[in-house]
Design a protein around this nucleic acid. Structure first.
Length: 291
DNA sequence: AACGCGGGGAT
DNA sequence: ATCCCAGCGTT
């Protein structure tokens, strides 16, 4: 058997026994639910997403239900999941789904990619997980597992849709059902076992096939990612402060109240201007409101 | 290719 | 204090 076959067959069998019980894996979970969950999971950890997802789907069980409300309600319901532009994009996607797809989440990757906030990962995740179609899905977990098990390196190289999709395609079983399971299985391995910080290689079902292990777990050679800027005192924090004030009030917040949120006037102005440009904030005579 | 964009939990 | 998280759009 090829290494690819060993990996796919072993992980699918492992996943059948070890998959976490997550909302989007419940039988009968809707394609809309999958789309919402994938939006929320873009850079936000699973444990923080679950409660917001349940609330969201109970309030807006269909794209049409969300599309019928102002975008600001989506931003409000997003609470502190982070990157609130995603709430705006999800609302805009709901509108587009109603207008262009009769209220049904599209199945074709190209149609999904045309939705705002849907990129290479989310489009294929929805097509694969919601509709069971055979597509290579590549997220940060999968990139890491492939880097280690297949490339024998501690960390993946810089993201490249072209390179990453080809690498995943080479592992993906040809059968639709097996391919869907494998997408979930390898992602789960990266999330639970082959983690970024302290991989649990002793508990890894494919340790015997892992080239990183064979190579003696060499350290990372490539270019390090740029160090992330500090959040405290950042423009991001100020944006979050302003948006939090808007979320806490049903009606308009006067500019004066916004001004009291942050001492650095220049930085606050920059934050407000950015929020206005992003459409997360609207300037009205009574003050600022959500869209 | 690199950057901006949130916020919280783990180490 | 730093890293990481089921990424995306813009430059």
């Amino acid at each position: 058997m090829s290494q690819a076959t060993v990996i796919s067959e072993t992980l699918v069998a492992w996943f059948a026994e070890n998959a976490r019980d997550l909302p989007w894996r419940r039988p009968g979970f809707s394609a809309w639910g999958t789309l919402v969950s994938e939006f929320m999971l873009q850079q936000t950890p699973v444990v923080r997403v679950i409660p917001r997802l349940e609330e969201w789907l109970s309030r807006w069980p269909t794209p049409a239900a969300l599309a019928a409300e102002p975008a600001g309600e989506a931003v409000r319901a997003w609470q502190s999941l982070g990157y609130p532009r995603r709430a705006l994009w999800l609302h805009a996607s709901a509108v587009a789904i109603v207008e262009r797809h009769g209220g049904v989440v599209p199945r074709a990757v190209d149609d999904l990619l045309a939705l705002p906030g849907v990129g290479d990962y989310t489009a294929r995740a929805v097509a694969a997980f919601a509709y069971g179609d055979r597509h290579p899905v590549v997220d940060t977990n999968i990139r890491r597992v492939i880097a280690r098990a297949v490339a024998g390196q501690a960390e993946p190289g810089p993201p490249s849709a072209r390179v990453d999709l080809v690498a995943m395609e080479a592992l993906l079983p040809h059968d639709d059902v097996a391919a869907r399971a494998f997408n979930g299985a390898i992602m789960e391995l990266g999330a639970v076992v082959c983690t970024a910080r302290a991989p649990r290689c002793d508990a890894c079902p494919i340790a015997h096939a892992c080239l990183w292990r064979t190579a003696g777990y060499p350290g990372f050679e490539g270019r390090r990612k740029a160090v992330q800027k500090k959040y405290e005192g950042s423009d991001r924090q100020v944006r979050g402060l302003v948006l939090g004030a808007l979320r806490a009030h049903d009606d308009a917040v006067p500019a004066q109240a916004i001004a009291a949120l942050w001492p650095d006037v220049e930085q606050l102005d920059r934050a407000v201007a950015g929020l206005l440009k992003d459409g997360l904030l609207v300037d009205t005579p009574a003050g600022y409101t959500l869209p």
